[in-house]
C-alpha cells in the first residue's frame, strides 16, 4: 500500500498563542511537497506539531498516516509509525555516541527479538556515511556534540537514510549549508525518493529546490497555506519574492498573529 499522509484543519498553539490556523494538506507516497514562506509564518511550527513536540498544543484538526491517527500517538510512536523530522536545530547529547543512538533507534523500530546485528548495522552505517561524505570518525563521536551546522544536517539525513521512514519532513535542512553540503544533502534525499515515501520540505529559499524538484509548492502565511502550485511557483518566488503573493491576497503582514 502506498503511503497516504493527510492533514485536515490542523490548528496548533504555543503557550496559548495560536500559530497554525487550519492547515490542510495531502501527501501521497512518491510525492515531494515544498512549503515555502517568509520567517514567522508558522512553517517550523507545522513540522514540530506533526512530530509532537511537547511545547506545541494541537487544538483542532486531524493528521493521519495510512489511516492511523497520528495525533493520538506519543512522539516515539509517531516515529515508529514512519514519521521522520529532520530538525532545524538537532539536540546535542553528551555521552551518547552517534552509533549507539542510531542502533537504539533502528532497534526501537525493529522491535524486541528482531534487533539488527552489530556487523550489519556497522556496514549499513558506514555505507550511508560514505554516501554523505561524512568522516567515519563521526560514528563514535557524541551525538551532534561539537558538530558544525553542516555536519549536524548531514547527520539528520544519515538518520533518515538508516530509519527508512514513510513520511519525511525536512525543516530548513538547507540553512547553514554551503553549496557542497547542500548538494550532498540533496543527493541523499533524492536517493531516498520512492513510490512509498512522501516528502514535506520546509524552506524559505528556493535554492534547495534546484536540487530536489518538488511536485507541489505551497506558500505559508499567517499560519495558513495561502497558495499552492507546481515547481514553477517556487521559481517565481525566487525571482520576484513574496510581495506579489501578499498583494494578490491582500495580506499586509504575513507573520502569524496579525490579522
Amino acid at each position: 500500500m502506498t503511503t497516504q499522509f493527510e492533514i485536515q484543519g490542523l490548528k496548533s498553539s504555543i503557550e496559548g498563542k495560536e500559530i497554525l490556523k487550519g492547515i490542510d494538506l495531502k501527501i501521497k507516497g512518491g510525492e515531494v511537497h515544498a512549503i515555502m514562506g517568509p520567517n514567522g509564518t508558522g512553517k517550523s511550527t507545522l513540522a514540530s506539531a506533526l512530530m509532537g513536540h511537547p511545547k506545541y498544543e494541537v487544538t483542532d484538526g486531524s493528521v493521519t498516516l495510512n489511516g492511523e491517527d497520528v495525533l493520538e500517538m506519543a512522539v516515539d510512536e509517531r516515529a515508529r509509525a514512519g514519521l521522520f523530522l529532520a530538525m532545524q536545530y538537532p539536540s546535542e547529547i553528551t555521552g551518547v555516541t552517534n552509533a549507539d543512538f542510531l542502533r537504539s533507534a533502528i532497534n526501537a523500530r525493529r522491535g524486541e527479538g528482531n534487533e539488527i546485528s552489530l556487523i550489519k548495522f556497522v556496514r549499513q552505517m558506514e555505507g550511508k556515511m560514505k554516501e554523505l561524505e561524512m568522516n567515519p570518525e563521526f560514528m563514535h563521536r557524541y551525538l551532534n556534540e561539537g558538530f558544525s551546522g553542516g555536519e549536524k544536517k548531514r547527520n539528520e539525513i544519515l538518520q533518515m537514510m538508516l530509519l527508512e521512514p514513510k513520511l519525511v519532513i525536512l525543516d530548513e535542512i538547507d540553512s547553514g549549508l554551503d553549496i557542497d553540503a547542500l548538494r550532498i544533502v540533496a543527493e541523499g534525499v533524492n536517493a531516498m525518493r520512492s513510490e512509498d515515501r512522501g516528502f514535506l520540505i520546509i524552506t524559505h529559499y528556493q535554492r534547495l529546490l534546484n536540487y530536489i524538484t518538488p511536485d507541489y509548492v505551497h506558500v505559508m502565511m499567517q499560519g495558513r497555506i495561502v497558495k499552492s502550485g507546481g515547481p514553477e511557483l517556487a521559481q517565481r518566488l525566487e525571482a520576484e519574492g513574496y510581495d506579489w503573493v501578499k498583494e494578490e491576497l491582500g495580506i499586509v503582514d504575513e507573520t502569524v498573529g496579525q490579522a
Partner: peptide, 25 residues
C-alpha cells in the same frame, strides 16, 4: 533531548536512560 531521541522512535524510558548514562560517560 528527550524529544529528539523519541522523534527517532526511542521510547521515553530508553531516551532518559541514554541521557543519564551519557551524562556520566
Amino acid at each position: 533531548q528527550v524529544y529528539y531521541l523519541m522523534s527517532r522512535g526511542i521510547s521515553r524510558k530508553e531516551a532518559e536512560r541514554l541521557i543519564i548514562h551519557g551524562f556520566l560517560d
